[in-house]
Nucleic acid binder design. Structure first.
Length: 548
RNA sequence: GGCCCCAUCGUCUAGGCAGGUCUAGGACAUCGGGUUUUCAACCCGGCAACAGGGGUUCGAAUCCCCUUGGGGCUACCA
């Protein structure tokens, strides 16, 4: 039995996308399940699209998810380098081999030539299918073209003598007609290989046994298989596994465009817009914002996020960072991603990493595309939050701290013991953001406390909260400082409620609004204990003074 | 347009390959009720699906064909 080797091979064009993360999860799970190796390979052969920071961002997103690789950037390995841009000479050797064997040939068309040919083909049959001309450019012509700075590419000649049969682990036998497949470019004019070429060479050299990827690559597979056979003869092909893809609510691919689209839709639906100040927040011109709202112009991410943030708008999460910033747990993310297109067969859904590795099986991958459902993610996150709180509090505290740092919450100054306490007094929280929102009142100075006007009017004015507050204050003040604990506070408040013959809510809500400024916080006793006696009293006084 | 993949509740799916045990199971969402000091969580209950049409068969969600619908590819992107 040969060792299982899988790889995740993203092209570094930005943040790690959920779809990419899902591919990474499946490859990683399969390698771990089989005690095999998992490789991270960076496919940066497109010089125009790659951004310099993308690789490090990608790496930090994978690390956050808890995905570790045995070979790749940062950890190295025997088959490196793991950045394709650093493997140029390797690919060049293999391209030359194909050229020598007559299985590939040069072509000298310019981009404009190809565009013209494509247009012509469109009018007749459909797509352009490039075929080897009877006489290909000679070595002399190639040299001359290069000297003149004209583009020179190398194409692979698709053998036309037999159908191409691909075997896919979940889809079975798939037959392709070679007449439908264009002779594709393997070496670009910039001397870098194309995806199909680099992928095949690297998968072979790195000993990849299972190619697990999205089904958008299914049509590349005959090309890659042909290339593999031309280059490596009878060497066993990797096992191809084309997973169904994840699509968005709107139908197509889950795209980064969803975030700007959500913002645009929200802005377009607003009546009283302060375009000038919003544009300033986004760091753009008012006219640009107008055009964006009208759908005439796009905005870059920082601008989109700044404006959405100013409006308190929640944008749909697309990248792994988005989920991290929304307070999701990595183990919930991995659990959810794994369940998108796979399931263990029984009714078990909530699984920790170890359980996922145990249960994972490529044969149980689903064939149909699935819709990304954030509601389900939320539910899974809620479960994991609950599990971690009882089974691994230190770990949960680390997650919470990382989240607080990420969103620069005032709570981030608290020590670990306090964080663990916050988690305990927020038992039903769905995300780390819930905990932050619910507890931040205790970490801002009393004088900077803001009051939610709706809650204030309802609880303090309409329901007469301000009238009962002085008596409550008196009772709380009577509690000795060393006994100002949740249980004593609760006892005291219940007594007041009983004597006044009202429900606890009539007592608790006015205090809550007075000390938190809002109608939402942990249970009232926990809230006051967290605040401490002096602050509690000071805030009640401040609230009482507020009525004027 | 051409080629490839796919099709069970609103969503993720079990069941399909080895046809009867499926009056189709679970989870999320939703709705109703309960608990409750707010939010959330929690408990109980309800609604809800085999895309359509033809075959094969004693019998089809399951096998075959067609239609329809969805997705992907059709780059010197990956």
């Amino acid at each position: 039995m040969t060792e299982v080797v899988t790889r995740f091979a993203p092209s570094p064009t930005g943040y790690l996308h959920v779809g990419g993360a899902r591919t990474a999860v499946f490859n990683w799970l399969w390698a771990r399940k089989n005690q095999g190796r998992f490789i991270l390979r960076i496919e940066d052969t497109d010089q125009r699209r790659n951004t310099p920071t993308a690789t490090s961002q990608l790496i930090s997103d994978l690390k956050w998810l808890g995905i570790t690789w045995d070979e790749g950037p940062e950890v190295g390995g025997p088959k490196g380098p793991y950045l394709q841009s650093q493997r140029k000479e390797i690919y060049a050797r293999y391209v030359q081999q194909l050229l020598d064997k007559g299985l590939a040939y040069y072509c000298l068309e310019s981009t404009e030539d190809l565009a013209r040919m494509r247009q012509q083909a469109q009018q007749q049959a459909g797509a352009l299918i490039y075929r080897r001309p009877t006489t290909c450019p000679s070595a002399e012509q190639v040299r001359q073209a290069k000297a003149e700075g004209r583009p020179v590419a190398v194409r692979f000649a698709i053998p036309q003598d037999r159908p191409i049969v691909v075997h896919d682990l979940i889809r079975g036998r798939i037959e392709f007609d070679p007449a439908q497949i264009s002779d594709f470019v393997i070496l670009k004019a910039d001397d870098l290989p194309t995806y199909n070429m680099a992928c095949v060479v690297d998968d072979y050299l790195m000993g990849v046994t299972h190619v697990i990827r999205g089904q958008e690559h299914l049509n590349n597979t005959p090309c890659q298989q042909l290339l593999w056979q031309a280059l490596f003869g009878d060497a066993p092909l990797p096992i191809y596994v084309h997973m169904a893809v994840t699509i968005s609510q709107s139908g197509g691919k889950l795209s980064k465009r969803e975030r700007p689209a959500a913002l645009q839709a929200a802005l377009a639906g607003m009546t009283d817009l302060d375009v000038a100040s919003l544009a300033r927040i986004g760091g753009i011109e008012p006219q640009q914002l107008e055009d964006f709202i009208a759908g005439k112009q796009s905005l870059d991410m920082p601008a989109v996020e700044a404006i959405a943030g100013a409006l308190g708008l929640h944008l749909p999460e697309i990248n792994i960072v988005d989920f991290r910033r929304s307070g999701y747990l990595p183990e919930a993310m991995v659990n959810f991603l794994a369940l998108l297109g796979w399931n263990p067969g029984g009714n078990k859904e909530i699984m920790c990493i170890e359980e996922l590795i145990q249960a994972f099986d490529l044969k149980r991958l689903t064939k149909a595309n699935s819709l990304f459902d954030r509601g389900k993610l939320l539910a899974i996150n809620t479960e994991h939050l609950k599990i971690l709180a009882t089974k691994d509090m230190p770990r949960l505290v680390r997650h919470l701290r990382a989240y607080l740092d990420e969103v620069r919450s005032p709570i981030r100054s608290a020590d670990d013991q306090t964080l663990s306490r916050l988690i305990k007094i927020c038992p039903g929280a769905r995300t780390l953001a819930d905990i932050e929102k619910k507890c931040r009142f205790a970490f801002i100075p009393t004088e900077q406390l803001t009051y939610d006007q709706v809650a204030w009017t309802k609880v303090m004015v309409q329901e007469g909260g301000l009238q009962v507050l002085p008596a409550i204050r008196q009772a709380l003040e009577a509690i000795p400082p060393d006994q100002f604990t949740a249980s004593t506070i609760e006892q005291t408040l219940r007594q007041i409620a009983q004597q006044a013959q009202v429900g606890l809510g009539k007592i608790a809500q006015p205090i809550r609004v007075a000390v938190c400024g809002s109608a939402v916080s942990p249970s009232i006793a926990d809230t006051l204990e967290l605040l401490g006696k002096p602050t509690t009293l000071a805030r009640i006084d401040q609230a009482l003074a507020r009525k004027g």
